[in-house]
Amino acid sequence: MKKHTGLLYTMPQILWLLVFFAAPLCIIIAYSFLRKGLYGGVEPQLSLDAYTAMANPNILLVTWRTLKISIIATALTLLIALPCGYSIARSKNQAIRLFLVIVPFWTNFLVRIYAWIAILGNEGFLNDILKALHLTSTGVQFLYNQTAVILVLVYMYLPYAILPLFSTIDKFDFTLLDAARDLGATKFQSYVRVLLPNIKSGLVTAGLFTFVPIFGAYAVPLLVGGKDSYMLGNIIADQLTKTRNWPLASSISMTVTVLTTGLVFLIALRKPREQKQVFDADPLLLQPVQAGKR
């Protein structure tokens, strides 16, 4: 009896995942093994073309670039999110600070990208200020390069890192830091050797929540990137909508999915206890990734 109730409760979630996640994924897998149609679509003919085409040096270069951008952006995000999460956890008015972290979500994702363009553009606010201060006469080219892509990605995914970090740090017993200090640790040592090991699960979650969506980024490199910022997400979109090679788009999507899922599993399997802790701690935190539009 009890078992059935549980199944009933989770049914909507399972159905949702089956219809909107598992089924499309199966279609993508199937398409990746078919021959491409001349005008888009696929021919009902098995083929490994889409996978051999991936060995192309151009695509390998883009994969490497995507990996590089994702790692740098994730590292920077964690570096900024850690002190933020810590200060919110120790603050007296947590509610207001958390609220401020969430406020940007009220504005559409694309509008926020265009806001960055307005700030960083050659004729943007930042250059206006620099010109007024006579630091430059022609303006600095901030936009349309990899640095701009990384900056905007870090901005976009910062809340996804701050929230899980905050929720783990909030449960941390801060008297442990005092104890460490009493036992002779410096302030820095107490953070590194006492705080960090205790919030590892939060760090892992925050890292995943940022790395996974950044690895599939599409709009940010498209809008603030330049000639050197073409990422895997852009290749997939172009193969689908411009070069009419649906199987190749599918095989690259598969590779991205397998790589990121593999990463999640690897971490989940290695740290079963801590993973569980985080997900138990606040199931709501799982939502941003699903809701996050790339």
């Binding site: 363009i117 553009g121 050659n122 004729e123 936009l143 349309y144 498209l222 809008l223 990137g225 330049g226 000639k227």
Partner: peptide
Amino acid sequence: WKPNLLKFDAEAFAKSFAAGE
């Protein structure tokens, strides 16, 4: 050509032009 181009863009090229970018 490419070394002189800011980027290839079919989405926001007109906005960039209008903004003086």
